[in-house]
Design a protein around this nucleic acid. Sequence first.
DNA 1: GATGAATGAGATTTCATTCAT
DNA 2: TATGAATGAAATCTCATTCAT
Lengths: 191, 191, 191, 191
Amino acid sequence: MKNRIVEASIQLFDQKGFTATSIKDIVEVLNVTKGTFYYYFKSKQELLRDIHLNYIDDLIDQQERILGDEEKDCTEKLHGIIYMVISNIRTNKESARIFFREMRHLSDKHVEEIRLKRNLFRKNYQSLIESGISEGEFKTTIPADMLTFGILGIMNWSYYWYNPDGDVSEEELAVIFTDIILKGVKTQKLV
Amino acid sequence: MKNRIVEASIQLFDQKGFTATSIKDIVEVLNVTKGTFYYYFKSKQELLRDIHLNYIDDLIDQQERILGDEEKDCTEKLHGIIYMVISNIRTNKESARIFFREMRHLSDKHVEEIRLKRNLFRKNYQSLIESGISEGEFKTTIPADMLTFGILGIMNWSYYWYNPDGDVSEEELAVIFTDIILKGVKTQKLV
Amino acid sequence: MKNRIVEASIQLFDQKGFTATSIKDIVEVLNVTKGTFYYYFKSKQELLRDIHLNYIDDLIDQQERILGDEEKDCTEKLHGIIYMVISNIRTNKESARIFFREMRHLSDKHVEEIRLKRNLFRKNYQSLIESGISEGEFKTTIPADMLTFGILGIMNWSYYWYNPDGDVSEEELAVIFTDIILKGVKTQKLV
Amino acid sequence: MKNRIVEASIQLFDQKGFTATSIKDIVEVLNVTKGTFYYYFKSKQELLRDIHLNYIDDLIDQQERILGDEEKDCTEKLHGIIYMVISNIRTNKESARIFFREMRHLSDKHVEEIRLKRNLFRKNYQSLIESGISEGEFKTTIPADMLTFGILGIMNWSYYWYNPDGDVSEEELAVIFTDIILKGVKTQKLV
DNA sequence: GATGAATGAGATTTCATTCAT
DNA sequence: TATGAATGAAATCTCATTCAT
């Protein structure tokens, strides 16, 4: 039941927003009563925190598995993470969007806990970029932090528009984005 | 007074979210009564719509002024729009974030109205890309729509992290992002 | 303007009820502002009182003109009043219904004023019946007060269903009702 | 509790009118909170609908029991219904008056539902009259529909003035009204 | 594990009225 | 005469939460 509550809430929080979703909305989907909700969760906020934690823990997990792969160079790892994020859209789109939008509704204590993990995820990305630079794979002229934010922007925005069942497959999109980031879009001028 | 209400609301909606901000919150900032609010706005939703419209109309305006400049090529126009968006962060960060997050709280009628303009903004971007490709400035291998979404991602995400008073100036960031998009981050392999 | 306010209010009070009609509703119909309303009326209640007074004063007037006619006997006067009331439906339906339904929303002071006139109207009716009985026109077995209430019931209820532009004309309906009251509906058994 | 809310509301709606009665008024009588009200009723309108339905369903029930009695002729049935209505004044005066006055505050959907039943009640009356006419009990010169409206007028108006604990008993009033309707008030002229 | 009744605080909105201009 | 801005009180309704069962 606890899981069913989480699943239903994720859908509703994504559709209507955390504040605009009432406990009544949630339990009506599940055909149970409010008492049931409070048997499993101390509060609405606690549920939100669970959703945030599930999402970010899983994401960091996947990220670190890719970054830890010693057989890949930075370029390959970059592609790996990009593909990983895009693959997550199919399965975790709603959680991700809740994560982006509803963090401010966590309690102060929880917001800190989550922010640390969120930063860790970004820092991991940035470390990869920095390694790539020091390994000579990426240009030295690019500020690693700005590039990281740029890539995160491309990735995170995908959750709002990309349809994995549309014309472009996840693999294709990962290649397209990796390509743009690595090589740019400008035609090569012959000198 | 109407303007003061809009200004105060933008701050609050950005900080706390539309649903979590009450009319009381708004009027307390302005030291007026709830009646005053409803003298100027038929509903909270109508205020939200005003904020959305102000934002997107202004943005499209700026965009079309740049795109209409006949002396610039596509590469220059791309840089122009990127710089324009980044400059807006200082003045319009809050409105923009409200625009990204709170659209679903508009009434059905207004959501359609806004969505059309939102799409127009994106389509204008995409047309620029397509022109760039047909002019030979951009690679033919890049799908224009995906690239557009990518660039929008980079831009829109900036509203959440970029601090115009930090180490990197608006001009610098515009150059950095334009550069990444045009030339990529990968070091040039010597053949 | 004062008259226009009264006219518009009568329509609205009849349609929506006194309490459910707002000053805003009234002034919007007239395309003026609330200030205008309060220039002509001290309060919403005062307007309601005006409507009540206009209605009942006029009605009593008409009634007394008929009752004072020395050339008619009681039977004829009864028919006269019945016809008078039915004729009023076309012109005063709305006022009448407001009169029946909204009296309780007058201030205590005004409610008394109106109630006196309302009773006067009824008493006038009853006096006619009593005269008819003592003149030998009406049966002595009928309690005059009960009969009066009965006739008033027939009359007043007409305001809720009778359509003067329908199949039955005002004259016809007056005859039908007078007939029923005078002669009853039962077939005469031959002994 | 639901029943207590209905009972209290009936008293208040009758005294003050539906619109002028607030939820606060209702729950204060019962010493509960507004939340309790909304636990039992979705809205104030829904409560009004319940009151209407209870009233009219019960009334039609009683009516049809009388009309279905095969041992009575039309004249007796007419008296039966008149007596039934008058008896209801003691027990249902308030509901009846709410029924007459507050129908317009129902939602469009419910107003239709109620109107159908209201018409059914009237049509049942009218059928009785028509039977009486075709059975030779009532005069053929009387239009059945107009007579029906007249009788309804007498009956319904009673709810506004008749005091069952006054000088005239329910049985007496029923006889008086039946008598007037059947035989009229005019003295028999000897030819 | 789960329910059903209840609460208290607060949300959006309405409204009669006032008053300076 | 009439307006427009503003108010303060109150109305309907929502909602997170509690608790006895």
